[in-house]
Amino acid sequence: MTRGQRRLSAMTAATFLIALTAACGGGGADTSRTEETGGGAAAQLSGQINSDGSSTVGPLTTAAYELFAEQQPRVQVAVGTSGTGGGFEKFCNGETDIQNASRPIKDEEKAACQSKGITYTELTVATDALTVVVNKENTWAKCLTVEQLKKIWEPAAEGKVKSWKDVDPKFPDEPLTLAGPGTDSGTFDYFTDEINGEEGASRKDYSASENDNDIVAAVAGAKGGLGYFGFTYFEENQDKLAAVEIDAGNGCVAPSVQTAQDGTYTPLSRPLFIYVKNESMKRPEVKAFVEFYATNINRIATDAKYIPLNSEQEAKLKSAVESLSAS
């Protein structure tokens, strides 16, 4: 062999070696993973469960799995977060077993599921309080009415409502700096529906981000800042931001675990859902996981820092899962 040839072969061999080592990086192949060790209630189940959907609900399903794995370590749940809409597309194509959703299924999604023969069960698993936040130095907007919020966020406000004075003449002439979630988010859908009266209708001249931490930073950085997101993000950033009380006609109500659970925080408290494919419930590992999810729902929700269901909702969830398991 010539020098060049040797070099070429060596390089080719090296390339493949690198590729191969990387490909085998997964470690010892445990092929027994899909085996069934069935029988009996306490039996060790195994298998993979696929879940996708909302990034708001995903961590809850993840937390449920982590607790479940303490009992059933061989069942594996993969949780994707391609958004409520993206998740429903996969769910109605029969590609996932559990869909995480921060809003109820839409009509066109129902039709998509129907055309593929996918039947499903909707389960309410937690509550969220969409929280409107302002800067800590904001002394005037302790409480806003739904009309005032609409005045700030409606499409007609674009380019017109630029100062707090434009919202209410009693407010100071402080520039209004708006931040909120992007249009792909279920949070955006819910907020625009409840406040502006039409899903997706919003002014566009605000800084939009899929990352709620950006909204935190934007509002914390401007005296006249205002933004909205899920309650968890407010809880984690209480030292940087202030939550606005919401007046929907029955006085000012602050977002909290209490007010979201008893339903007084309207209209911005919302249910969070999972959708379970009925067909998948025939698989013992999916059935066991969903039953575990429902039975321990409040422990899971508290653990993952969500607002737990009230006792009425909890009972409803448990009976829904029971009848689903029985069928």
Binding site: G58, P59, G80, T81
Partner: peptide, 10 residues
């Protein structure tokens, strides 16, 4: 749909 939470190696 690369999952953001996968508790196992492929």
């Amino acid at each position: 749909g690369a999952a953001t939470f996968v508790p196992f190696n492929p």
